[in-house]
């Protein structure tokens, strides 16, 4: 019981500190990133890809404008598309706006965080930080676990 109370207090302090230090943002503080994962790479020459769900739990639309990570010099959101002839192509997706209460899925065969110019190989079992930047100046950083090359989803 005492222990539980202490945890609650600690949480309250943490929330207060976080609340105080957060700049005045419109929306991005309500962004939640779930189920982040990525595939291991072979060396550093090939680009990597990371996937996740970006959920806007707030009441204002948020716009995802960019990515940053120490792992790759050129991280960018790309989108794979397959046309009516069955030919697939990939191109930068540009800015992505998420309406209040909505989420955007970065998943295989669609939107993905393309990690170009890897600074080191992506090794199975490790993590790397990925920062999502929003148009209101807010940033959300997630730890992305690196799964095997043949992983099909966040659970491997």
């Amino acid at each position: 019981m005492v222990k539980k109370l202490r945890y609650t207090n600690a949480l309250a302090v943490l929330l207060t500190v976080a609340g105080l230090s957060a700049p005045a943002l419109a929306g991005s503080e309500d962004v939640v990133v779930e189920n982040a994962w990525s595939r291991a790479s072979i060396g550093v020459n090939r680009p990597g890809a990371a996937y996740m769900t970006v959920r806007n739990t707030g009441e204002d639309a948020v716009t995802l404008t960019g990515l940053a990570t120490p792992l790759a010099m050129m991280p960018e959101i790309h989108e794979s598309k397959t046309n009516s002839d069955g030919v697939s192509s990939m191109a930068p997706a540009g800015e992505i706006t998420i309406e209040p209460g909505q989420s955007v899925a970065l998943e295989p065969g669609g939107l993905h965080a393309m990690l170009m110019k890897l600074q080191e190989p992506m090794t199975e079992g490790e993590n790397f930080p990925l920062t999502l930047t929003f148009s209101d100046g807010g940033k959300v950083t997630v730890e992305v676990p690196i799964l095997g090359i043949a992983a099909r989803g966040p659970k491997g």
Binding site: N45, R46, A49, S80, S88, M90, R152
Partner: peptide, 17 residues
Amino acid sequence: FTYCPDVCPTTLSDISG
């Protein structure tokens, strides 16, 4: 192609499945 970060590993892992 092996420098394909999204569609190709997805195809290969789907086929493996």
